[in-house]
Design a protein around this nucleic acid. Structure first.
Lengths: 111, 111
DNA sequence: TCATTGTGCAACCTGCAAGTTGCCCGTCAA
DNA sequence: TTGACGGGCAACTTGCAGGTTGCACAATGA
């Protein structure tokens, strides 16, 4: 079985995904593959600097990874972190199901 | 197939889970079932008021639901929202896999 | 060589989130 | 009826996130 995801690890990832602009960046990186800052800024309503800041926020959360190539800075997704977040939600859902089961048994006993 | 999760719906949920205290509250509600504010504040390092604010943040994101019972306010989890967040991560991962597949085919063609 | 392109850096502004404190109110039990 | 318990409300502080502007700098291409 996969090891349990710690809350302290999951929270920063969720926080990094909790911004609409960042979530859009993640979606684009996921659909189109690695892109430069200029390309990622293209079509966005905020400044290139704002995009850069968001990319660093995603990087600090481990969701994204940047590489310098000539005068460009290429950013790509790190799907492992997203998968970790998904696993955390799975864990919580699993606990919930177990709690429901316990409740059912309790009700059965009382009845 | 389940309908696609919109980014605008997912972002607030992620944001609500992006705080360590709130994530802890969610975990407790999930493991122990519905609890009052007093119980949820018990063991936390912040004030009851702070917990109340966090619970309202989770409620605004649709992750949690509160009911008044006598002089107590009972809060319980809404697993549907968490499941939605999980589905969103599934979507993104799916796109990522498709992108990898396209890349593989492209490399095969070139080779 | 020189203009253009893609970025990085730093300073700055602004609004909101997180937390606290103080006070008041309904509810429940003795 | 009264005191204790569980909460709501409002004002206030503080730190930081999100965004901007201005400038400097390296890489690139004509």
């Amino acid at each position: 079985m996969a090891s349990a995801v710690r809350r302290a690890d999951a929270a920063p990832v969720f926080a990094s995904l909790g911004d609409a602009t960042r979530l859009r960046l993640v979606a684009r990186l996921c659909a189109d593959g690695p892109l430069s800052i200029a390309h990622l800024s293209d079509g966005e309503e905020v400044t290139r600097q704002a995009i850069t800041k968001h990319l660093h926020a995603l990087k600090d959360a481990g969701v994204v990874h940047g590489t310098r190539a000539g005068r460009e800075h290429i950013w790509e997704l790190r799907p492992k972190r997203l998968e970790m977040a998904r696993r955390y939600l799975d864990q919580v859902s699993g606990q919930w199901d177990a709690a429901l089961e316990r409740l059912r048994e309790f009700v059965d006993e009382e009845g």
